[in-house]
Nucleic acid binder design. Structure first.
Lengths: 204, 204, 204, 204
DNA sequence: TGTTAACCGAGACGGTACGTCGGGTCTTCCG
DNA sequence: CGGAAGACCCGACGTACCGTCTCGGTTAACA
């Protein structure tokens, strides 16, 4: 967004960045995270490796930008209709991780960030901007729609299951579970208990 | 399990395997998945690298055996009390992933298996023997306790969220969310809808 | 020499050339031939590398100009007094190589010119204008002073030993052998043999 | 000489060392010192670069061993006949530097050792074991043959001129000046002055 | 009591990727 | 047009792991 300052010196050739990012995504899909080395990207894209190092300080940063550019996967204004809002949110949230390259990269990125430097918190990719958004949607829901006894964070963790099970674990070739089913599950979790609330949940 | 044939020749020194596995776990915790190389394990354990290659054909196999030996994380006989059975199951299931070394290895192993060889299906570590077990518990529940409209696989995916969010994303130093909360969530999902069942779930 | 045409446009800043050459000499002395890269000169002098490339087409040319500008190390008119003429010549000749920067550069320049391009003949730095001059001095010597059986080139080669042993091989910190000793050696070589000339030299 | 200890572990493949050294010499002659990189040696010899790094810690060490193995160029027992002894010595000494690969490497090696580390003194290649040897020959000469007023080191420096002028400066294709001429020059330097010794050389 | 076969350590081997640095060329902005 | 800045391709550098291999030297079970 916005040209990068444009000072003196030869400007960067944008097509080089694009070629590198595209090649990165292709390699992620075709050969996987481990094989997506800077050398391989250079060879596959025709860009010289040093031009890649000039832009990204490591292969991790390259892969991050190729798969999660900007890092703001979800941005939905709640309208007050719980099912409708949730449906849009889940669709957008899942969408950020459903691109083939993102699917191929997520586990590797998490593995990397669990350890080194902790430059970015490991859960960045999955929670950032999404968890607050999720809470916002719940706040906007009509009174009586959401059980106040339920912790939104607990529900959000459940939603993560749907995301990660599709992203990391499901066979890439298999058909994805439809999004609507996941929304139903979330709504089930939020629904207030009838009667006295002594049914399933309540303790602990 | 079962001694390895025991023909002529010098038998393997079991203490070497143990030292290697222990060092592997220590390195996973202290330095993370990427830094847990065979060379590092050799150096840290005092075992020579070739003795490690004699036992495990790659660093991935070494890490797998060090963190998920046997690969049967859960084994619970359902007793028919849904809350009680589910509580024991979730506790056992989470337990398999809560060891520090397993936490440090899971993402890396998933990343590896997403691609290469597909020797083992990627979701192995998380579903194997657990998904059928989960269904079994639901089957054993008293009639009327579990909504027949709910797909057990959808619920299981939600449970994965609780597992993975603790395993991969949460800060290792932060306190873990208590297991009971997760069990409540699962039971909420399974609870039949009052009235006609056309409430929250049903469409799509 | 002579201003460079002075057409339209901004004239060259001469101080830049000087700063670069000075920095080159300093780097040669402080860090040696290999470390005297164009990048290092740019950094050390505050002159941008591209301004250096505008003036010299390679680092070799830069170093050459910094250490042997003009390439006419010796220029002595012989007066006919052999010892006096030779003394002045040797002093001037050695002087051309005794500057610290020249000492540090000579071997590297020779190594470069042995191979590449042969743009300049490799022995340039050591013989050009000096070998003819040397012969001239011998011609100007009074008859009977110089043995006609001696090949001036052979003697000049010997003189090179004194030069190179000081330039390339002697420890920079060690005291230099005095010039007079070298002159004595040269004169010994030139002195005619007494008697029949059947003494030391003569055959071959 | 003498097998290299033969400890445990897989022994080194000697043919690899030989192939590398041979390729190094070939590249020195054909492409020169600067182009004799470890990569080029690897490619030209078919030996993998890592096998080269296992034996030599830098390209300088590789080139040193390829051109001056053992570093004892001269080893002559003086017999007491000055001309004969000197002739054998000069022949051997020149021989050490006359191999085409040595000619191509010497200047570069000197340039390198002038600076870095000073692991080996720069003049090593030219003086080691030769300067003492030279003095020994002079000592063994019959009395009256060598002028005691002459400093052997001064004479040796002159000899270096003959060596270096052939090694570094002469065109590789040109015919070499015959060795006998150089021996004559040396003997001229050593010859005692007739009469009182106050002739050509004396003081200063 | 030997054989024999597998173990163990050590370390060489050909590979691949890493990230850095220097080389020259070229392109842009500013004075 | 000169000068600073910096991107561009290129290639060498030396390090670290990978997984395979060949050794010399144990160490047991078996004949």
């Amino acid at each position: 967004m916005a040209e990068p300052a444009r000072g003196p010196g030869r400007p960067r050739d944008n097509s080089i960045s694009e070629r590198a990012l595209t090649a990165t995504r292709e390699l992620l899909v075709e050969r996987g995270f481990e094989a997506t080395t800077i050398q391989a990207v250079a060879e596959h894209s025709g860009v010289h490796a040093s031009a890649i190092y000039r832009r990204w300080s490591s292969r991790i940063e390259l892969i991050e930008e190729a798969t999660f550019p900007g890092l703001n996967p979800v941005s939905v204004r709640p309208a007050g209709d719980l099912r409708r809002d949730m449906s849009r949110f889940v669709r957008a949230y899942l969408g950020a991780f459903s691109a083939p390259a993102a699917r191929a990269a997520t586990a590797g990125l998490i593995a990397h960030h669990q350890t080194s430097g902790r430059s970015r918190p490991p859960e960045l990719y999955l929670r950032v901007s999404a968890r607050p958004q999720f809470r916002e949607i719940l706040s906007a829901a009509p009174p009586g729609t959401v059980d106040p006894a339920v912790d939104p964070d607990d529900v959000f963790d459940m939603l993560l299951g749907a995301v990660l099970s599709r992203t990391l674990l499901a066979d890439a070739a298999a058909p994805q579970r439809p999004v609507g089913r996941t929304v139903d599950m979330i709504l089930r979790l939020l629904r207030p208990l009838e009667g006295d609330g002594a049914g399933a949940g309540g303790r602990q």
